[in-house]
Amino acid sequence: MNIFRLSGDVCHLIAIIILFLKIWRSKSCAGISGKSQVLFALVFTTRYLDLFTSYISAYNTVMKVVYLLLAYSTVGLIFFRFRNSYDSESDSFRVEFLLVPVAGLSFLENYAFTPLEILWTFSIYLESVAILPQLFMITKTGEAESITAHYLLFLGLYRALYLANWLWRFHTEGFYDQIAVVSGVVQTIFYCDFFYLYFTRVLRGSGKMSLP
């Protein structure tokens, strides 16, 4: 554990909590891609199956359980409790275009051809693209509420801090997880355009992030 990894995990947690509280307090999931949230729930589910097979630390177990609970609670708010506010028309990204290649790639490029490893690899690849339905929705509607933008900012910070974590671990331990690093770089690149918009529009601007 190093400071980059810890702050990355905390940013990830803050992002998930921001989104959950935004929906809970406003009783609305307007502007939120339910598809991205289902993909994230699927990411956590397929990655954290090792909860049943290997114990790493209390921190590791607690964080995994919290991420899972929050992910499923958020999906529950969007598709059940506040489903009337769900904008399915704008959430029109075709997730099969992500799921099929990601599933195929996880069978081809993994560390070991075992069910748990393939599912872990699937979760890593899927996480790198799971935000695309949300970014697509923002592009389609042309704007995002600032709170949604804060959510995306923390999610992007989490990725960027994990890159720093991997550089640090490579430097200090010689640790190098190729699948996670390559996917993590791809994932972070998706946020770069958003980071630019966030700093030029949300921080200077009027509460909403409009796209050009």
Binding site: D9, R47, K64, Y111, E117, N165, Y176, D177, A180
Partner: peptide, 10 residues
């Protein structure tokens, strides 16, 4: 071979 024995990251 398997490079990563245990996935300790979240």
């Amino acid at each position: 071979g398997t490079l990563i024995e245990v996935h300790d990251e979240l």
